[in-house]
Amino acid sequence: MTDPVLPEGRCAARVARVDRGWLTVLTADGDRRVPSTGLREADGVAVGDWVVLAGDRAVRVLPRRTAFVRTAAGRGSAPQVVAANVDLVLVVDALGAGLRSRRVERYLAVAWASGATPVVVLTKADLCADVPAALAAVARSAPGVQVLAVSALTGGGIEAVQELLAPGRTAVMVGPSGVGKSSLTNALTGRPAAATADVRGDGRGRHTTTARELHLLPGGGLLIDTPGMRELALPGGEGVDAAYADVADRAADCRFRDCAHDSEPGCAVTAAIDRGDLDPARFAAWQRLQAEAHRQELRADAWARAAESARLRALHREMRARPARPRR
């Protein structure tokens, strides 16, 4: 980010952690813990944000370049910024029986919508009997995305991830619980920066990270670790076509713009499926996410309207509660 021009006595700081009423920030003079009471509730500060400090208080959130935004499943859920101003989104999953390509695709759809570059990182490579085959299978579900395999236990593949995190670059790790994000954080930072837990009897990891936190890496890069996300609803449809570029590109070649990709003449999607050039399972997944994203956009519009109505009602109540000005 280009250094903003700030009034004398104020400086910019990077948010490393958000706690109730307090922020841990990184400044040129080191870490500081400052109250967030000077920020408006609407600012919605997130890890990775740049804030303006005035003395010992954060008073303003600077505009974001990128943001990984999630929406928890549920009717009343509002979009939530998981990490701000990131260059890379590391979509982390574990090699083995628990690896699901549809889950990776969902994370990639949200990652593409963030404005950052997604990378798939597959952990626990030491437990996989055929790593090249697993990489190839995931790559088919992630067109245009780099796919890496790593092992925090042996150190294999860690250097390839480190090379992505050049000085000044910020990455956020996202993925379900128990896939090894904390172990990967420790391997990249070179210290026990995140708590880890033993593997369960079924081979899956245990949830350990409880808060989002930004870590400064030895090479000058920055890494945001996040808790596992039990549910990841799409905030909108911006990243779905990017995650399913192989489907979306063919859909764009259909004869009719409103093609339902069923039995219409000139449908490039059904033709590709008939030729064996397109996986029908990916086409079905694309359709499901498109429909989900549309529902979420309608829900978000309704939530925004309700929030604005509540704000106006509160403003009217405040105005009515003010004492009347005496007449002259």
Results as ranks from 00 to 15, higher is better:
Pro79Lys: 08
Pro79Met: 03
Leu90Thr: 05
Ala78Val: 15
Ala78Trp: 10
Val86Ile: 15
Asp87Val: 03
Leu90Ile: 06
Leu90Asn: 01
Val86Glu: 03
Arg75Cys: 00
Arg106Asn: 10
Ala94Trp: 02
Leu108Arg: 08
Gly96Lys: 08
Arg75Val: 14
Val89Glu: 02
Gly76Asp: 15
Val92Trp: 07
Ala94Met: 04
Val82Tyr: 12
Leu95Pro: 09
Arg102Phe: 06
Val82Cys: 05
Val86Asn: 10
Arg75Asp: 14
Val92Gly: 01
Pro79Gln: 10
Ser77Gln: 13
Leu99Ser: 04
Leu88Ala: 01
Gly76Lys: 09
Arg106Leu: 11
Gly76Ser: 14
Ala97Leu: 13
Val92Arg: 03
Val89Ser: 10
Asn85Glu: 07
Val86Pro: 03
Val81Ala: 07
Val82Ser: 02
Leu95Met: 15
Val91Glu: 02
Arg106Ala: 10
Leu95Trp: 01
Leu99Asp: 05
Val92Met: 06
Leu88Ile: 12
Arg103Leu: 15
Arg102Gly: 13
Glu105Val: 02
Glu105Phe: 03
Val91Gln: 06
Ala78Leu: 13
Asn85Ile: 10
Asp87Phe: 07
Ala84Pro: 08
Asp93Leu: 12
Glu105Met: 01
Pro79Gly: 02
Ala97Arg: 15
Ser101Cys: 07
Val110Ala: 15
Gly98Asp: 15
Gln80Ser: 12
Val110Ser: 12
Ser101Trp: 00
Arg103Asn: 11
Arg100Lys: 13
Ala109Val: 11
Ala97Trp: 04
Arg103Met: 14
Leu95Lys: 07
Ala94Cys: 05
Arg106Ile: 11
Val104Glu: 01
Leu90Arg: 09
Val110Asn: 01
Asn85Cys: 10
Val91Arg: 05
Asp93Val: 00
Val110Pro: 00
Ser77Glu: 13
Gly96Ala: 05
Asn85Ala: 09
Ala94Lys: 07
Glu105Gln: 15
Ala84Thr: 11
Gly96Asp: 12
Gly76Asn: 14
Leu90His: 08
Val86Gly: 05
Ala94Val: 02
Gly98Trp: 00
Arg102Asn: 09
Ala78Ser: 11
Val81Glu: 12
Arg75Gly: 04
Leu90Asp: 04
Ser101Leu: 15
Val82Leu: 15
Arg100His: 14
Arg103Cys: 08
